[in-house]
Design a protein around this nucleic acid. Structure first.
Lengths: 255, 255
DNA sequence: AAATTGCGTTCCAAATAATGGAACTTCAGA
DNA sequence: TCTGAAGTTCCATTATTTGGAACGCAATTT
């Protein structure tokens, strides 16, 4: 990663707090960051002052509301959602299962939209969430679109965590899987991230340099077997192609 | 505002881009910020590098997806939403109009939740949005809860903009109105922010130092007259009190 | 075709802010 | 009261940011 000076250091701390399981206290952050006391303290103070972090009465840090305010703009300008929405809806209609749209950002996948049957209320909590690239259908699919060299470089920088027995938890396993995905044009998630959850995903490019995204159909293992996933693959790939074409048309040519 | 060093400067630029009507280009940011060229350029580069901003093919800047990813955590930890949800729903049931929940953050109100009849789809665009404190029911109500001295200090720092003919566009007008609100216990928005939109809001405190929030019932002027707003005032104040009590009980005592 | 203008990028000595080790303050428990 | 853990403050040293100016480039004008 390139040098982003002071800002980069502050963001690393912000990430640390945002990603923590439970709101960390000063010394938790101190320990995890490895930076000296004075530095961490001042940085956190600045982040709090700016509203990017908040500090509770018990001394624990949590993400600040300023982030919400900033993100609501990011949300509005994510024009790809507008374009993809009808296509996602159609795919949901066809399969009856949950449909996701996500983009590759660094080593993670960020979910931009979701269409599901019942729980439209839960939407907020999912959208905007980041997940690892190596154990999600969308992540693997999007990765397969990058130039091989770039993908390898990204993979080399991953820290693997085993979420389920099926998680691809090594660079080698992921590289092999990618080769399969590149040929097939679609990726499966066989309960690799969450036990009991399967999906099939297809990648597409977005206008702009190295913009890789994917959409997927996800369902519970008890209802969705490998056979159904394979039956849907064609439709998912078709939908991905459609989004890509529409986006190129309306947002400018691909790079 | 206190000194947050380099981070503060970067955040001011980020704000500038986030709040712009349309994605600004380098020279727009340069002009609006008033900072020298080299400085702005490097800062923007850093922000882009960190994913807080993105730069489109045509050279325009827009908020980055990293913000979404960070905000989704902030979202999850805004526990007040969970507590308030049923109370907002009840208030919506009772009035039939849109109900908002917002908190005071600096000179702005940030909307945390919203219950409305039809357009549940639009929800995303509204939630997380920041609005000025002086021309919204929620803003004025929340302000009325601050110690008089603190409120005056905040008001002194406001830059007023006239959105409609009814906007309270001076510190004096706002101070007078606040006095009325303090006595009544609720605030009206008589088309002060948007023509044709009226609301009645009641403030409440949240656990933590100087945490002021409010909830409101909003409706279109053609359907909602001053008489109906006044009729709802009682219910809105009751709901606010209920949220306050629940929050104190479940999130710790008030300060 | 040459000149001009607008726009974005790069450079570097001077100014400024961040660093980080250590000392200081609280507070809780023994 | 003593002890240790957690958080805060201080300040000389060090590294980063600053900002004016020059450069590159493409579109527009002469």
């Amino acid at each position: 990663m390139k040098d982003t000076g002071t800002l980069g250091k502050a963001m690393r701390l912000l990430d640390l707090v945002a990603r923590a399981e439970r709101p960390p206290r000063f010394s938790d952050v101190l320990q995890q960051s490895g930076e000296p006391r004075g530095t961490v303290h001042r940085q956190l103070s600045h982040l709090v002052e700016e509203g990017l972090l908040e500090i509770a009465a018990d001394g624990t840090y949590r993400p600040g509301l300023r982030l919400l305010s900033l993100a609501s703009r990011a949300w509005a300008s994510a024009d790809i959602r507008t374009i993809a929405a009808p296509i996602l809806a159609a795919l949901h209609e066809e399969t009856g299962e949950t449909v996701h749209l996500g983009v590759l950002r660094g080593q993670e996948v960020i979910y931009l939209d979701k269409v599901e049957s019942r729980q439209s209320v839960r939407m907020h909590s999912q959208i905007g969430r980041a997940s690892p690239v190596y154990c999600t259908g969308i992540g693997k699919a999007a990765l397969s679109l990058l130039p091989a060299e770039e993908a390898s470089r990204l993979i080399a920088g991953l820290r693997f965590e085993r979420f389920t027995p099926s998680t691809l938890a090594s660079a080698l396993a992921l590289e092999v899987e990618l080769e399969v995905i590149r040929i097939a044009g679609h990726a499966f998630d066989r309960e690799e991230h969450e036990e009991g959850i399967r999906c099939v995903a297809a990648p597409f490019r977005l206008p702009g340099p190295d913009q890789a995204a994917a959409l997927s159909v996800t369902g519970p293992a008890f209802r969705v077997g490998q056979d159904r996933l394979e039956a849907w693959a064609e439709a998912v790939m078709r939908a991905a192609k459609t989004v890509e074409k529409e986006a190129a048309l309306r947002l400018g040519p691909l790079h």
